[in-house]
Design a protein around this nucleic acid. Sequence first.
DNA 1: GCCAACGTTGGC
DNA 2: GCCAACGTTGGC
Length: 150
Amino acid sequence: MQYWLMKSEPDAFSIDDLQRVKIEPWDGVRNYQARNMMRDQMKKGDQIFFYHSNCDVPGIVGIMQVEKPGYLDHTAFDPEAKYYDPKSKEDNPRWYMVDVKFVKKLKRTISLAELKEQQPLEEMALVRKGNRLSIMPVEKPQWDYILSLL
DNA sequence: GCCAACGTTGGC
DNA sequence: GCCAACGTTGGC
């Protein structure tokens, strides 16, 4: 069992959206590090923090889990799609995604500001300056510590 | 292989 | 809306 954190802009797709649809293909990721984690490392049942970025109060808002491990992100082949990538070919696909499933919404947002105050979390990529990775692994002790803040 | 230019992310 | 920090692209 591994633990992860995935970012989404709530204007585009929020924890409430996930609660409504239950299962969502996490498409549109166009970053190689994130791609590699989805394609090679994420397993069904892995637990994931849902993080709201680019909003009034950025932070962790819920928990989801991997429902379907890495598979082709077909939206890269579609010229009409927002994240169309003409360099991703069907015979040599470049991008992958996973399906995620709603687990729960936290009773409050654990804000980035609060996370930055936590000494046990200072090694987390999330709180490091300039971090832009939209998917990152979370260590089990960090996962437990964050939940203990609730 | 270097690096300038450009585009994107995301906090503030 | 600004801008720092990155990642990508493409000329050389």
